Computed example of a mutant assay.
Amino acid sequence: MTYTPICRIDDILPDTGVAARVGDRHVAVFRIGAERFHAIDNIDPRSGASVLARGLVGNIGERVVVASPLYKNHFDLSTGECLEAPEQSVRAHAVCVQDGRVLVALN
């Protein structure tokens, strides 16, 4: 698995996301609390717009999700599953932190 550096940890405020390009893929990287990170595709499958990094982060039950800013569908940050329409799920990607930097590997 090849990891691509995205940004410094401090570049992502807790409970928000940032957009990045990894290869030819638009990726949304989220910081949950102080130390947890998740990455999913940034393209909203319903609209085709690269906007998921700008969605609102929250919880639905035990699941940590982001709500798309366009159609309000919720995407599980661990799996990429769209809770309202599973057929519109996105890919989840591996994230690691090294030397104060956030890195993503495409799955």
Results as ranks from 00 to 15, higher is better:
Thr2Leu: 14
Tyr3Phe: 15
Tyr3His: 00
Thr4Asn: 08
Pro5Val: 15
Ile6Met: 13
Ile6His: 12
Cys7Ala: 15
Arg8Asn: 15
Ile9Ala: 06
Asp10Cys: 11
Asp11Phe: 06
Leu13Ile: 04
Leu13Ser: 13
Thr16Gly: 07
Thr16Met: 02
Thr16Arg: 02
Gly17Cys: 00
Gly17Arg: 00
Gly17Ala: 07
Val18Glu: 06
Ala19Tyr: 05
Val22Glu: 12
Gly23His: 14
Gly23Ser: 01
Asp24Cys: 06
Asp24His: 14
Arg25Glu: 14
His26Ala: 15
Val29Thr: 04
Arg31Ala: 05
Arg31Glu: 07
Ile32Thr: 09
Ile32Leu: 14
Gly33Arg: 13
Gly33Trp: 11
Gly33Phe: 03
Gly33Tyr: 05
Ala34Cys: 02
Glu35Arg: 14
Phe37Gly: 11
Phe37Thr: 10
Ala39Trp: 03
Ala39His: 03
Ile40Ser: 02
Asp41Ser: 09
Ile43His: 04
Ile43Leu: 03
Ile43Thr: 15
Asp44Thr: 10
Arg46Asp: 09
Arg46Asn: 03
Ser47Val: 08
Ser47Ala: 08
Gly48Met: 08
Ala49Phe: 12
Ala53Tyr: 03
Ala53Cys: 07
Arg54Thr: 04
Arg54Asp: 05
Leu56Cys: 01
Gly58Asp: 08
Asn59Pro: 04
Asn59Phe: 02
Gly61Lys: 09
Gly61Arg: 14
Arg63Ile: 15
Arg63Lys: 06
Arg63Ser: 06
Val66Asn: 02
Val66Trp: 05
Ala67Arg: 13
Ala67Leu: 13
Leu70His: 05
Leu70Met: 10
Tyr71Arg: 10
Tyr71Pro: 03
Tyr71Ala: 04
Tyr71Cys: 03
Asn73Leu: 06
Asn73Trp: 05
Asn73Lys: 09
Phe75Asp: 05
Asp76His: 02
Leu77Glu: 01
Leu77Ile: 09
Leu77Lys: 04
Leu77Tyr: 02
Ser78Cys: 14
Ser78Pro: 05
Ser78Gly: 11
Thr79Met: 10
Thr79Asn: 00
Gly80His: 12
Gly80Thr: 11
Leu83Glu: 12
Leu83Thr: 06
Glu84Gly: 07
Ser89Arg: 14
Val90Glu: 01
Arg91Phe: 00
Arg91Cys: 05
Ala92Lys: 13
His93Cys: 04
Ala94Phe: 04
Val95Phe: 00
Val95Gly: 01
Cys96Leu: 15
Val97Asp: 03
Gln98Trp: 09
Gln98Asn: 10
Asp99Phe: 08
Arg101Glu: 15
Arg101Thr: 11
Val102His: 08
Val104Glu: 03
Val104Ile: 12
Val104Arg: 03
Leu106Asp: 04
Asn107Met: 08
